[in-house]
Design a protein around this nucleic acid. Structure first.
Lengths: 124, 124
DNA sequence: CCGCATCCACCTAGATACTG
DNA sequence: CAGTATCTAGGTGGATGCGG
């Protein structure tokens, strides 16, 4: 049905394999917020990632779900609510997202000395 | 001139900052090979990353160069030759690429038990 | 061999509107 | 609130050719 299959992963290149899973435009950012909060509703993610449209967010979440990275729990209450959590498999991505975060913190610091008030890290 | 500026990096989200630099479709793979070899010619990269066209490879390399991640050295011999190396700044991405690699190795192993003959890691 | 310019088919992602 | 469907402009990346 879908497309995907962006990387041929020739010669079993491990980096290509990883990208095949997390290279979606907003996936790592979504995972970052899930690691920080352990659980998020759709709306929380949406407001945390302001530049990502509802449509895009839903698509990225769907792909992460299909790949077994996150799990979705739907509550058919009114108003509607949906919880997203990392699966056990998704948890294995923690070091990857953590290093993305760590590098970004250093990078931001370098670019803007005054902005010491960053998001708190989820790395103990 | 260009586009870029994909991520708004709202609230200084560190992951978005990092992605702003390395989220190009082939950038992390390029960096991976540069970390493994320390120095690469255009052709070496091209054959190492078979699915990436010459045009794409040149574009991605250009962006990495513009961001100060890699340095290009042109030898105007015939036939032409160009060396790519990581800058000092680029070296700071090592842990990021390393974690992408590490996760990919585990993932490949899980998917294909018989494929123990993977690319050797550059992490000592 | 390296790399850029141009052309063009395809795809992506925003806007909008509609369901539960 | 959460998510999907459609429609569409504009971006993306392959093919090709030139020039150093």
């Amino acid at each position: 049905m879908k497309k995907r299959q962006v990387y041929g992963c020739q010669a079993g290149c491990p980096v290509e394999s990883t990208l095949q899973i997390i290279s979606g435009k907003w996936k790592s950012v979504i995972l970052y917020h899930l690691f920080k909060q352990r659980l998020c509703h759709f709306g929380e993610l949406h407001s945390a990632i302001a530049d990502c449209s509802r449509r895009m967010l839903a698509l990225q979440l769907r792909e992460l779900e299909d790949d077994g990275i996150i799990k979705k729990t739907i509550f058919s209450e009114i108003p509607l609510r949906t919880d997203y959590t990392l699966t056990e498999f998704g948890q294995t991505l923690r070091p990857v997202v953590a290093s993305l975060e760590q590098w970004g913190i250093q990078y931001n610091r370098k670019r803007n000395r005054s902005a010491d008030t960053q998001c708190s890290t989820f790395v103990d």
